[in-house]
Design a protein around this nucleic acid. Structure first.
Lengths: 116, 116
DNA sequence: CAGAACGTGTACTACATGGTACACACTTTG
DNA sequence: CAAAGTGTGTACCATGTAGTACACGTTCTG
């Protein structure tokens, strides 16, 4: 699934159920041109900026990290964390990137409620 | 320390010790104009692309992740890992970003030689 | 003291990014 | 059946990115 398809699916679902989610309606609330939103949804142009994607996520009630990922982007706060301590985070991510989901989840949980 | 200062320091050190590290010499080996390298070193322009930074790291025998970080960038392989599993890695990094170095190191080590 | 080496200033460029503005055609709906 | 709502096509644009090309002045060096 790519970014455009994904948000179009979600938007049309909302349009059919709650309404007020036309390209025009949503575009206006997002502060962007309806034609631009249309092009984004059909992948006729590259995904929008991080700021715009965040507004879309809020409006569509979606996880911003997931939408950013679909757009091939990484949240700026994560980028900054890595940039601050590149060696540590680079090692960490490379160590984990080929492990299954549950291994990463286990780390997250351990850190979250362990005494670190 | 910023990117330009950092590489200039390293380059002049190499120039004084081993030689063949003038702006011209290095620039030629890197495949970039000496004037451009000069401007990069004096932060008169933004840091180069990831590819160029990698070549610089190799030539100066520096850690590419560190140079990329100084340039405010994150290695593309790390970005890809995050983009593949955004929720997991977002949680992980946000959980760790305010913890001290040794905590992250401990995780890296545990994962490296544990049975995950 | 000529020429090589060195760093730098100026001008320019191709392509990417992140959009705007406006008109058009089709489809609902009161 | 007119007006409102809906999606989309076309044209355009400012700014950022990642550099090139070349000339210039200074400083070492044989």
């Amino acid at each position: 699934m790519n970014f455009g398809q994904y948000i179009r699916t979600k938007r049309t679902l909302l349009q059919e159920t709650v309404g007020h989610y036309s390209v025009r309606g949503l575009g206006t609330r997002l502060g962007i041109q309806p034609s631009y939103l249309s092009k984004v949804e059909r992948e006729q142009v590259a995904p929008p900026s991080e700021a715009t994607i965040r507004r879309i996520a809020e409006e569509l009630n979606e996880d911003p990290d997931v939408l950013l990922a679909l757009a091939g982007k990484v949240s700026s706060d994560l980028r900054q964390a890595i940039v601050k301590r590149p060696r540590l985070f680079a090692d960490l991510i490379r160590e984990l990137k080929d492990l299954p989901d549950h291994a990463i989840l286990r780390v997250v949980r351990e850190v979250r409620d362990g005494n670190w």
